[in-house]
Amino acid sequence: MQIFVKTLTGKTITLEVEPSDTIENVKAKIQDKEGIPPDQQRLIFAGKQLEDGRTLSDYNIQKDSTLHLVLR
Rank of each mutant, 00 (worst) to 15 (best):
E51D: 08
F45R: 04
S20E: 15
T12G: 07
L56T: 03
Q41W: 05
D64W: 04
L8W: 06
S65D: 13
T14K: 14
L43H: 01
P38F: 07
I61M: 05
F4T: 05
V26D: 00
E18K: 08
T55Q: 08
L71I: 11
K63W: 09
D39Q: 13
Q31H: 11
T55G: 03
A28E: 08
L8T: 11
D64P: 02
V17Y: 08
M1R: 04
T66A: 09
F45T: 03
L56D: 00
R72N: 12
D39K: 07
V5E: 00
K48I: 15
H68M: 02
H68L: 03
Q49M: 13
V5I: 10
I23Q: 03
I61D: 00
K33S: 03
E51M: 03
G53R: 04
K6R: 07
F4S: 14
D32F: 04
E18P: 07
T7W: 15
G47V: 03
E24P: 15
D58M: 07
Q40M: 12
A46P: 01
T9E: 12
F4A: 04
Q41G: 06
G47F: 10
I13Y: 15
S57F: 10
F45V: 09
R54S: 11
L71N: 04
S57L: 12
F45I: 03
V5Q: 00
P38H: 15
P19N: 06
V5W: 01
Q62R: 07
G35Q: 12
N60P: 08
K6I: 05
T14F: 13
L71E: 13
D52R: 03
D58Y: 09
E24R: 15
V17I: 06
T12I: 07
I13P: 00
R72W: 08
E16W: 11
Q62A: 05
K29E: 11
D39G: 06
V26W: 01
T55S: 15
G47K: 03
T14H: 13
K48R: 13
L69Y: 02
P38E: 11
Y59W: 02
P37A: 11
T55Y: 14
A28T: 06
A46E: 15
Q31I: 03
T14G: 06
